[in-house]
Amino acid sequence: MFSSEIARLRKLGVQGLLFQLLNLLSVVTSGLMMWKALCLITNSESPIVVVLSGSMEPAFYRGDILFLTNPHHVPYEVGDITVYKVPGGDVPIVHRVIESHITNTTQLLLTKGDNNPGDDLVLYGGMQWLEPKHIIGRVRGFLPYVGYVTIALNDFPQLKYALLGGVGVFLLLQKEGS
């Protein structure tokens, strides 16, 4: 079954194999560069996020993709949907701002999920207010369903390894110029 592939690998030789490895690396690094460039442009540490919970239904469902921006020194407004992460919390939360109090030094924010009965005070881990330093960005764009791929990959880790392995093997074995 793999005899032809092995034969091809033999034909490539060490130099060819290294060249293929270089190809693989350039694919990975260019992806990383594009992501980091997007981070720089949007000033957000994670400009694209996937919705993981149903707390913003019917606006966002699990698996929807959100595009964020976080311009420097632009205050958040009430009604903005923000993505925030509190110290000690492991997942970013997508919720709407319902209170904003701008003082000389900072901005105090309170958020709530559209589908939740109460506000988010219990999620803040002892803090009374959310501050701009906790916020990753505000939601500007929306693309439905596509993010479900990552949820599936997270829920079934085998799928993730199979996919990564498959892509790696494919790139290594790919014939140049084909």
């Binding site: 019917p58 319902i98 904003s100 003082t103």
Partner: peptide, 16 residues
Amino acid sequence: VPQVNHEVVLWDRIIT
């Protein structure tokens, strides 16, 4: 006294 700008939501509703 320190100046504070406030904005709060009092009521909301989703219309689909």
